[in-house]
């Protein structure tokens, strides 16, 4: 167990957001059960007011989770000197591979939470509030995720054993790094670059086409593509974009780019990637919700701005990942 201040902060944040999420979800389920627009006025009013509380609780929990993802990566970065052989956050995560699952869970919570907030916003736009029941039932999957998040965090930090010199002999240990990262890093460079840029271009075309055409399947396709785009983007960051950013042919760390030494370039990169993904996923949601009477006007009005945002994030991401590869000082031709 490591009693680092950052670890304490993370556990506290995890605990608070779990409490808020579970309070919100439980309250939400109760509201969903009793929700009845034609029911007694006084009951309905108190449900409406509780719905506000749920929305606020969930919103804060999501914000905390998002911040906690950042803090987690930072903490992993900061405590890496505690582990033999760890050079950056990747090493800390490899020291107890549960850390990788934590990142996925936090990321998933963040994505789902973002979608839920859009859903909540749409529901509040419409006087008939047709989504109320659905949106509160949609909170249920958050509960296991939040519980898993906190539990894994505890297990992760409890399982981290810094090798203290006084109890073992010397620098003769090093953590073998055969996690996911090393597999990603080992992907062949040239095909990977081709696949990534082809995917990037295809995704951009799809966004543009969706802007022009109003066919429903287009938007579903876009959402699917957004999911793939996220995976592809993350893979490419580990596989080669990181190399160009650090200007080192062997440094694959996806987290170092969040540091000052790389001018914090990681923030816009990840933000644009996640932004494009969320905005793309929202398309499918809007398309699906179009069928619900009373919502079609609101959703079809919302589609275009979300598409434009997708396009914006896509361009930002393309620019940020293309720039160092095209104009950066590192030339990787020898590695092709």
């Amino acid at each position: 167990m490591i009693l680092h201040p950052g670890v304490l902060a993370l556990l506290l944040g995890g605990l608070v957001s779990l409490l808020m999420l579970s309070a919100g979800a439980l309250l939400g389920i109760r509201i969903a059960r009793r929700w009845n627009p034609d029911g007694a006025e006084a009951d309905q009013l108190s449900l409406e007011r509780r719905a506000w509380l749920v929305a606020v609780l969930v919103r804060w929990a999501i914000v905390f989770e998002a911040l906690s993802l950042l803090l987690f990566i930072y903490t992993a970065e900061v405590i890496h000197p505690l582990f033999v052989g760890a050079m950056c956050a990747t090493g800390t995560l490899n020291a107890n591979p549960i850390g990788w699952h934590l990142i996925w869970i936090k990321l998933l919570l963040f994505l789902l939470g973002g979608l839920w907030m859009v859903l909540n916003h749409l529901d509040l736009q419409c006087p008939e509030a047709p989504l109320t029941r659905f949106k509160f039932i949609a909170l249920i999957p958050f509960l296991p995720l939040a519980i898993a998040d906190l539990t894994l965090m505890v297990i992760y930090f409890a399982g981290l054993e810094p090798e203290v010199i006084t109890s073992c002999c010397g620098a003769l240990f090093s953590s073998g790094g055969d996690g996911l990262a090393s597999e990603l890093a080992a992907l062949p460079l040239r095909p990977m670059m081709i696949v990534f840029y082809a995917g990037l271009a295809a995704y951009g075309c799809l966004v543009l086409l969706s802007l022009l055409s109003r066919r429903p399947w287009m938007h579903y396709l876009l959402a699917l593509a957004s999911g793939l785009f996220l995976v592809l983007g993350l893979t490419a960051i580990v596989s080669f974009i990181s190399l160009y950013i650090y200007e080192l042919p062997t440094h694959h760390c996806p987290f170092d780019m969040l540091q000052r030494s790389s001018n914090f370039v990681g923030y816009p990169i990840y933000l644009s990637l996640l932004g494009a993904t969320i905005c793309g996923l929202v398309q499918a949601m809007l398309e699906y919700l179009c069928r619900i009477p009373g919502l079609s006007v609101i959703t079809s009005r919302a589609q275009r701005p979300w598409l434009l945002m997708t396009l914006f994030f896509w361009m930002l991401f393309a620019l940020l990942t293309g720039w160092p590869v095209l104009f950066g000082p590192l030339a990787m031709t020898a590695y092709f």
């Binding site: 627009p37 034609d38 006025e41 007011r49 509040l124 006087p127 509030a129």
Partner: peptide, 22 residues
């Protein structure tokens, strides 16, 4: 406030069942 029962119509729109926000 909303009525316990009955209807209130303002400028042709029924408001007695509107959510508080609206």
């Amino acid at each position: 406030t909303r009525p316990t029962s009955g209807r209130v119509i303002v400028t042709g729109e029924e408001v007695s069942r509107l959510p508080e926000r609206f």
